[in-house]
């Protein structure tokens, strides 16, 4: 598997990481190498094998429906780069 620049640009967009066009070629090479490396898995016969969902041996635990958290607005906003009137603030989103 060999990735082209366009695919790198698409992945970078999906991952929201700006990749300057000048770097795309190099990155395409690196990522292709990794993909080539992992392609050896095709040798393994996995017909009928369940994909692993978790190595934890127990069943999913459920918690009771009680309000035990929240009400900590100041702490939630404390580390935010920009806030106003109790909101997080981001550049305008146009829908």
């Amino acid at each position: 598997m060999s990735l082209d620049k366009a695919t790198v640009a698409k992945i970078a967009h999906l991952a929201r990481i700006k990749v300057p066009e000048a770097d795309q070629e190099h990155l395409a090479g690196e990522l292709s190498n990794i993909l080539n490396f992992v392609e050896q898995l095709n040798e393994v016969d996995t017909v009928g094998v369940q994909p692993m969902t978790s190595v934890a041996p127990h069943k999913l635990r459920r918690r009771p429906d009680a309000v035990t958290d929240g009400g900590v607005r100041d702490a939630v906003l404390l580390n935010a780069p920009e806030t106003a009137e109790g909101f997080f603030v981001v550049p305008k989103v146009v829908e």
Partner: peptide, 10 residues
């Protein structure tokens, strides 16, 4: 989107 001219509040 209507709280500020150039910002979105979350």
């Amino acid at each position: 989107h209507d709280q500020h001219p150039s910002k979105t509040y979350v």
